[in-house]
Amino acid sequence: MMMNLFSSFDPSSNWSMSLNWLSTTIGLMIIPSSFWFIPSRSTILWNKITTTLHKEFKTLIGENIKGSTLMMVSLFSLIMFNNFLGLFPYIFTSSSHMVMTLTLALPLWLTFMVFGWINNTVHMFAHLVPQGTPPVLMPFMVCIETISNVIRPGTLAIRLSANMIAGHLLMTLLGNTGTVMSTYMVSILIIVQIALLLLESAVAIIQSYVFAVLSTLYSSEVN
């Protein structure tokens, strides 16, 4: 039983079980089977999407680190898959939890920082002071740039989880009011819910794309 509205995002609130995290691995049972069939329209569409993302990430990262675009495309696919799973009834939205989003963002950022400070130390120091900064403001700019660099994994994680929670909460709030509405208002509510569902589908794609692109930009800064 849910004690408050946010309990719908608690993995142990549904059926008193913590097995809802298994929704993250459902794709391992569904996706590989598509490789054994004749390429369908959905497979061709997905190949075009991954090819387009590969070209864009390659432009952002450059050709210095080969194979890094594969990691970013895989990150985009994982986040988008989990975002879409949360739109189905009774399926736990794992991407709305900081446990998952921080698990994705923190190791990426930490890896970029360690690689940058070990291999390009002078370049990393130069990033702390923007070009053209007056000497008087240099100590303040170093503090500001350091803080903005440290909070990057937190902003990545909070942006993804907050956007996924916001839409689901709005749909839940509107859905709970349907029991006290008239038949005419319920029909309007259904249309609004369908529109919100389409909006959440777009948000699921946009947020996974934003997460992957920002991670790519952070990696390009340390080269």
Rank of each mutant, 00 (worst) to 15 (best):
L170D: 09
I158Q: 00
F115M: 07
S33T: 14
F140C: 02
M71I: 13
I30W: 04
Q131T: 13
M3T: 15
P135E: 11
S187T: 11
M124D: 00
V150K: 04
G27Y: 02
C143V: 15
I26E: 01
S7R: 07
F37N: 09
N176C: 09
I79H: 07
V222W: 04
F9P: 04
F125K: 10
F112E: 06
N176Q: 13
F112N: 14
M29Y: 11
F88H: 04
I191R: 15
M3Q: 15
I61N: 06
M2S: 10
S96H: 00
T101E: 02
M71Q: 08
V180R: 06
M17N: 14
G67Y: 02
V73L: 06
M185V: 08
E221C: 05
T111D: 05
N20R: 12
T101V: 02
T172S: 14
L169I: 08
L53M: 05
Y184L: 11
N4C: 13
F92Q: 05
N4F: 07
W15G: 11
M17Y: 06
D10T: 07
K48V: 04
S33V: 12
N120Y: 11
V142F: 07
F92H: 07
V150M: 12
M181D: 09
P39K: 07
D10E: 05
V186I: 15
L19A: 15
E200R: 14
G178I: 05
G62N: 09
F115I: 08
L128M: 15
S8F: 13
P139M: 05
T93M: 01
I191E: 14
S94M: 07
L108E: 02
S219N: 08
N223S: 12
N4S: 15
I38L: 13
V180C: 06
P134A: 06
F81W: 15
S23I: 03
L199M: 10
A105C: 00
T146N: 08
L156I: 01
S96D: 08
T52Q: 08
V136H: 08
L60Q: 09
M113V: 11
P153A: 05
S33M: 14
T59L: 13
L104S: 03
N163K: 02
S215L: 00
A195T: 11
Y184G: 07
S187G: 05
W117L: 11
P135N: 12
I118H: 11
I144Q: 09
V122I: 13
L137V: 09
V142Q: 09
M113Q: 12
M71E: 10
T146Y: 04
M113L: 11
M29W: 14
W109N: 03
T177C: 10
V150F: 14
A195P: 03
Y90L: 11
L19P: 01
A195N: 05
S220Q: 09
F9R: 02
T59P: 00
I205R: 00
N82A: 08
Q207F: 03
V222N: 03
P89I: 04
H97P: 01
V213A: 02
